[in-house]
Design a protein around this nucleic acid. Sequence first.
DNA 1: AGATAACCGAGACGGTACGTCCCGTCTTACC
DNA 2: GGTAAGACGGGACGTACCGTCTCGGTTATCT
Lengths: 216, 216, 216, 216
Amino acid sequence: MPNRPSAPPARDPASSPAEEPVRRRPMGGRPRDPQIDGAILGAVRALLAEEGYAKLSFETVARRAGVTRPTIYRRWSSKAQLVHEAVFPTPGHAPLIPDTGDFAADVRRMVATTVASYSRPEARAALPGLFGDLHDRPDLRATVIDGLETRVREHFRSLVAAAVARGEVRADADADVVFDALMGAVFNRTVVRGDMSEAFVEGLAGVVVEGVRGRE
Amino acid sequence: MPNRPSAPPARDPASSPAEEPVRRRPMGGRPRDPQIDGAILGAVRALLAEEGYAKLSFETVARRAGVTRPTIYRRWSSKAQLVHEAVFPTPGHAPLIPDTGDFAADVRRMVATTVASYSRPEARAALPGLFGDLHDRPDLRATVIDGLETRVREHFRSLVAAAVARGEVRADADADVVFDALMGAVFNRTVVRGDMSEAFVEGLAGVVVEGVRGRE
Amino acid sequence: MPNRPSAPPARDPASSPAEEPVRRRPMGGRPRDPQIDGAILGAVRALLAEEGYAKLSFETVARRAGVTRPTIYRRWSSKAQLVHEAVFPTPGHAPLIPDTGDFAADVRRMVATTVASYSRPEARAALPGLFGDLHDRPDLRATVIDGLETRVREHFRSLVAAAVARGEVRADADADVVFDALMGAVFNRTVVRGDMSEAFVEGLAGVVVEGVRGRE
Amino acid sequence: MPNRPSAPPARDPASSPAEEPVRRRPMGGRPRDPQIDGAILGAVRALLAEEGYAKLSFETVARRAGVTRPTIYRRWSSKAQLVHEAVFPTPGHAPLIPDTGDFAADVRRMVATTVASYSRPEARAALPGLFGDLHDRPDLRATVIDGLETRVREHFRSLVAAAVARGEVRADADADVVFDALMGAVFNRTVVRGDMSEAFVEGLAGVVVEGVRGRE
DNA sequence: AGATAACCGAGACGGTACGTCCCGTCTTACC
DNA sequence: GGTAAGACGGGACGTACCGTCTCGGTTATCT
């Protein structure tokens, strides 16, 4: 969570300081009101769903959450980081699907999971906005893309490797190509066009799995 | 081009007024300076490439183009329409690739054409911004999506149908699924991640073509 | 009225440009909403009376007047100038009393006039605030002091001179000393202590007039 | 000195607890560092002289005095009280002039004393600011006005009474009117206009003394 | 001697207000 | 009627300071 201008509260004195270099604030100071974080993030989600990314501003969020702008600036330094944390509460917001030994079924479930996440109104509004704000901001780019897909992509690579080992997938298959085809299609249908369907998920998974099927 | 707030020039006196109700301006008045359109659209492309969608505004465009803001507002009623016309000069900005009888090669060429278009700096900056501005604006949504892909998608359907007839593609293949997988992957790699490569194009076309190959 | 950041409207084309170098705006531009000036100045007076000078800010005035802060900044560049114009609508807010030939009566009337002006709640709140804001701001000092007393002081000098000529006042009387004694006493009683009375006006005028009475 | 938010030090164990309900702190605890009071008040005077009342804040005082803001808040509950104590260290900051038997001379000395006090840069900066902060704060108003003039005013009444007894001043003279004329004129010239002079003191005292001279 | 309690410094909190930039609009003068 | 010039009123920005609160460490008084 490198998106906070200053360190987060993290005031737990019982956390073991030896095994993990917990970035705790050096000392005193009034602790943050923990309710405010929730109010702000909730306001962000509501505004995204109702008004879209463009009309969301620190000002409108503050009004909606019943706090003042500096209170938000203390926690998030840009609209993109604020939206990212509100919509995709890092990390692990995309739960990794288990390897069941059936590659086709696993792909279908992975696609369905992504569809569910991207179909949320706040996600539909947030994703293009976030992508648009990445221009010439490498740190933000890393944060957003990492949060969205890096873990899932790496997990998918291991799924493919296992499927190759089982003979379900041919050895020269490029997991990244498959992953981008799946995710890109989901983004296009769910976020941009807004006409995603279960049939589409089936068809997509079918084509792609067939495209990498191992030769007997 | 339904994106002009007031009537476009359309002063062609040779157009037959009978067969088509050409919306011509009522009469007289100073005609628009045709050079100004080009200056504005050029400024838009330059600003997109240099500063990104977020920092582009009517104000910055006006300054860059040496024009006043009202002059731009007279021609385009929103930033999205202005950017859309500057980056994807409708229609036919995406030339349809011919059907050579080799489905795999045609797919590869179609993907390459899209990659070329999306790789332009102004397109990379514009696309997520445009998608983000579509929230709750159905007219704009239709305009943008139509301009971007509808003609290409329909053309692709005919390519697939021909390939099915030739036995290259199996009969139950869903052209739209394939199209979205291709376009989504290109968008993801080219616009969002920015690490598109020729190898990826090859791999992508390979997987997808294999996924719909006709059974012998 | 040198207290406006940019030139005031002054768009009257009939004003003779020869006899007076009217500072008119060079040219076009949307004219100011004339109602807004009144709304702002009224809000200032109300806030002064209710909350005092210290709690009055551009922000509170804007809220009360139903306008935004930049609208006020366009018209007045500092709180002191805004308050000054609201409470003492320059110039001539202090009407000069006529010379009736009875010096004692004229003094009494001049004092009463000042008492009436300083007794307004907005004036009571504004005066010490204005004085306090004059620290190291010579231009503002000149504006405020001029607006408040210069004309009146000069008029009073002529009253004294006339009274000297009539023998009512002795020749070596210093009009400025008398003026400051009168005005200072009124300020003290009306603004600071807030226990002004008619008897005090009588007593004050009596002592001072007696103090400069001509010897027979 | 009712201006301390919590109990003042008042730790003098010799003060008789019977005859006066000295508000002593209930019990132990670390005593206040007596040097800090001086550092704060000195910083206030310096800041007043250099920057004026408006720019003085608990923050700037704390920085200047090398102290933290809460340390000041523990001692004074408002800027006005802090400034008042720094500039007019109550009580008796205005030493009463003795009755020499020469009313005119005593008046001149009283005026000169006031001029000397009000001419201090910190006093010139403080006075209008203090007056401005009295709006709707009766306790503060009493404190400030009492500290500034009540004792002097009462002493002046006794001077006038003695002068009446001696025949120097006529019997119906209103000491308060005279006092306000003197003090108001001094305030106006010294604090507001800043052009006080010895000649003005002479002239002022002369006019006023003449104004109440006893008839032979 | 230990417990208690207030102090001070440090530092962050949530809120008010600041002064500025930009938005989209409107008006005038001119062409 | 289009254009340049230019100001309007409003939305939002990012920051400075306000008065308060919490902490850790200190220093006295009271049991």
